[in-house]
Design a protein around this nucleic acid. Structure first.
Ligand code: MN
Ligand code: MN
Ligand code: ZN
Ligand code: ZN
Lengths: 143, 143
DNA sequence: GCGTAGATGATAATAGTTCTCATTTGCAAC
DNA sequence: GTTGCAAATGAGAACTATTATCATCTACGC
């Protein structure tokens, strides 16, 4: 659909290179929305793109700093990235199948802000992860 | 104050041993409420308790499973433990000094439950971490 | 096309955590 | 109070996720 162009990277202050375009293309392909460095690496190799793991890690961090991607620290140790689409949201993670569902609740957001400012804190960011089971019978969410 | 007794461990289904009692004592001493495995290890050594790092990791996990401790995954990679006092709460972490402040907001809690059940999920647990700055001048929270 | 700053990728290094296994210890039965 | 043994410990190896190093390659302005 919308294949990334060199300018997508240049506009973000990054030189246009083959690995960067491939990584951005993978996220824009929409196959999987939330991916770890390892996920990205394997998907690229599977697709025939030749890339180094170190480059994947570097580029993901650069993309995060450039605001192209958002990083999440779910339970399990490895960080997970997703395309930054401007709209903040939180996550429900299925403990059975790993499916991730997104949500936004304005009340929760404003109450968080209230709680923090009441205590004299200036909020930078927050993470709200709900860990749950989605299974009625067998996990309906394909993974 | 209330030094842990062998029965504190036995009641939790764990054999009473020196390292386990020492670790539990450290958490009950209230010096620091939120500690990583490394924190616990160093504090015990500093106090003169001879213990192995592997034992600290093992015991922390056992205590978590036994419900004596709660584990948190804050940003930064390492898990952090605190005494389980029965009352769930969430956390504000100061990005400058690392100070952790606890809070509980019933509205946030109930809205989370609502959001999850509306989507067909059965909540197991959740984590809400607010990352913020506490600094008005210099960080008031000693660390 | 050239030159060069910046990017890449193989690999080494690091951090946090778990595993292995020989030794020690808690505790219950004598 | 000994003894026996399953369970626990601790030193170190192994593992996983990630970052650092550095020789080679490449994008791109001239
Ligand atoms: Mn998301
Ligand atoms: Mn706490
Ligand atoms: Zn599921
Ligand atoms: Zn602070």
């Amino acid at each position: 659909m919308d294949k990334p162009q060199p300018d997508d990277l240049k506009d973000a202050g990054l030189k246009s290179t083959v690995p960067r375009l491939n990584i951005l293309a993978l996220f824009k392909s929409g196959q999987e929305r939330h991916m770890s460095a390892e996920d990205v690496y394997k998907q690229l190799l599977a697709k025939g793109d030749d890339v180094g793991l170190a480059t994947v890690y570097r580029v993901l961090t650069q993309f995060e700093q450039a605001g192209l991607l958002v990083r999440h620290y779910f339970e399990g140790g490895k960080s997970v990235f997703e395309l930054n689409q401007g709209k903040h949201h939180d996550h429900i993670v299925c403990l059975q199948c790993g499916h991730v569902e997104e949500f936004y609740d304005a009340d929760i957001e404003s109450r968080q802000e209230k709680v923090a400012t009441e205590r004299g804190f200036a909020v930078h960011n927050h993470s709200l992860h709900i860990y749950a089971d989605c299974n009625k019978k067998a996990c309906p969410h394909k993974h």
